[in-house]
Write a protein that binds this DNA or RNA. Structure first.
Lengths: 339, 339
DNA sequence: AGCCATATTGACAGCGCTGTCATGATTTGC
DNA sequence: GCAAATCATGACAGCGCTGTCAATATGGCT
């Protein structure tokens, strides 16, 4: 059952070579510019390629030659703009060097993630970048055995298989707690999406709680809602939370900015005073939070940078350069006006 | 200069075959399950593959066999959640059939887009999906000549090279104008991001203006700000607009929801009454707009669906099924409470 | 027993390209 | 003017896999 469509009649290098009156290998060299080829030979080959509308076949090239110029990227989600930003950084940097992204989205499912890794590996990518969900032992074994550059992004708290690029999510959580404490808040609550599948959000929350504990405090309430984070969920959750808790000097730490913006909307709709009645803190430093009537108190994460730096790691590795196995891009607390 | 890293010592099908005590081609058949292979042979091959940790090489497979299972996707941006949604739909659907996305992001630059198409074509993808910026003649020629399934997404107003999946952006703009007119608004303004590079936003605006013209109206003001759309830009632009225009019965049509939400934030910060002082209309039906204290008047676009359907188009084409060259997924006006 | 359909396997060539080594054509140096 | 170095090109084999066709084995049927 041969494919219905393309009668794959695309010109090959051999045809280009014939027209240019040179051998195939010379044409190959002319097209790639790796080895020296006489000026006029080069011109003839280029002309022939142009005339035939020749498009090189990188499958064949890679198979014969070696390094693929594809990098596999596995992300847990795309609905969250965080990963879209990271992907943008990755794509931008990789493309500069003529590399391309093959994408997999795991939906925060470790088993799915493992399957994706297996499948993407069949394309023999030059490297792998992933924001692991809760990677299975199987995944980690495969990655280690692949012999490829493997960059785990977003979090640097766990020991990486190979290289990690990101920030300490735990430290970010701690810093936010300390900031709120320093501002004088003593009544704290946490509102998150389903962090059982999101290890980074969990790490932040754990850091937040740990810092509270150091100060002898505990959360007045912790609400975890099923489903992915969203503005709507944050709004709904805030309403629920305030059914149980009195306002006035209450600070709510959200799992991220989306959720926090939802909280802000709830406050606005209810005519609550922010931060007097209700203080809010997010995470990510999304532009929407900063465009709110009151800028959101949050932590800036450098998502595009993480993507770019992860890409650079892969590329440097491929060029045989030594690289730091743990790369901390840091974060920055944005005081804002909601806490 | 051989690659520094992977001493590509990965097991090959030949090795699997040897261990299983069968010929290479039999092992191939066993791995793929296309042709019948005796039960115990199958088991032996699978065991051997398992033991060696065999990972098939799809580069070789595709080169030898035919159809690649990669689909090239070219998008103008990832910062806009619209395209992240589309990509999610694409990835989800393609993966179900064992296909993978190779990604390119053009940043709304037609020349860049053309280069991306050229490069991605070198991987001999099975198909192409793109949300064209302002495609160059060169791009269109290449696409037509590729002989591959080519799906242009988002807009169905222009004649597609091959297949189009999306909605009539122009009709969406018209519908919004008619809706506002019907609500009794007569004072209209338009606030957009740099639509010179975004043909879809432009089509919506044109439709909007055309419908106004039918009613004998023209825009009181049209403000186009440089740079990509964002909540911040919408907020800033609204402030600028209201420097020149009086409020009270004024309806502003924004290029999309991000911009409109920014407008809403400005209104909130200024204590303006929405919609009495200022009415706002967006486009996309993003969840954030619906979570606002007052849900945004907007038009729902089915982004994930567009992605899924575009993927299905490619797959169906590859299976030799006939498909409709123009697929309208439609849209829905969400009345909201801001106009 | 003899013949045929079916099931199972294999030999061979080739997908389009590149690494390696070898060859001929020039140039350079003394 | 001749050996050595340099430049430009080519022949060959092979990357890892699959399509095609052919071969063998097995069982059923008359």
């Amino acid at each position: 059952m041969p494919a219905a469509l393309p009668d794959d009649t695309r010109p090959t290098l051999a045809q280009v070579a014939r027209i240019a009156g040179v051998s195939e290998i010379t044409a190959s060299r002319a097209m790639r510019g790796t080895t020296l080829v006489a000026q006029d030979t080069l011109a003839r080959v280029q002309a022939a390629a142009q005339a035939l509308n020749y498009v090189p076949n990188r499958l064949a090239g890679t198979l014969a030659g070696g390094q693929s110029r594809q990098v596999a990227v596995v992300l847990p989600s795309l609905s969250n703009s965080v990963f879209a930003d990271v992907l943008k950084g990755l794509e931008t940097r990789l493309e500069q060097d003529g590399y391309h992204v093959i994408l997999g989205v795991s939906n925060y499912d470790p088993a799915h993630e493992e399957r994706l890794i297996t499948e993407l590996l069949t394309w023999r990518p030059a490297g792998l970048v992933l924001a692991p969900a809760e990677s299975t032992p199987g995944s980690r074994r495969m990655l280690a055995a692949s012999g490829l550059p493997v960059v785990e992004i977003m979090d640097i708290d766990r020991a990486p298989v190979d290289v990690a690029v990101g920030l300490s999510q735990r430290a970010a959580g701690q810093d936010m707690a300390r900031f709120l404490l320093q501002r004088g808040y003593r009544r704290m609550a946490y509102l998150g999406h389903d962090i059982s599948v999101d290890p980074r959000a969990r790490a932040r929350r754990d850091g937040f709680c740990a810092a509270l504990a150091e100060a002898g405090l505990t959360l007045e309430a912790m609400l975890l809602l099923p489903g992915p984070s969203s503005v709507g969920l944050g709004r709904k959750g805030t309403a629920q939370l305030l059914d149980r808790l009195s306002v006035g000097g209450l600070a709510v730490c959200y799992s991220n900015d989306d959720m926090a913006v939802g909280g802000m909307f709830h406050a606005m709709a209810q005519g609550l005073l922010v931060p007097a009645d209700l203080a809010l803190a997010g995470f990510n430093g999304l532009s929407i939070g900063q465009a709110l009537p009151q800028p959101l108190t949050t932590i800036e994460s450098r998502r595009v940078l993480i993507g770019e730096q992860a890409a650079s790691c892969v590329l440097n590795r491929l060029h045989g350069l030594a690289i730091d196995p743990v790369q901390n891009v840091g974060f920055r607390l944005i005081p804002g006006a909601t806490a």
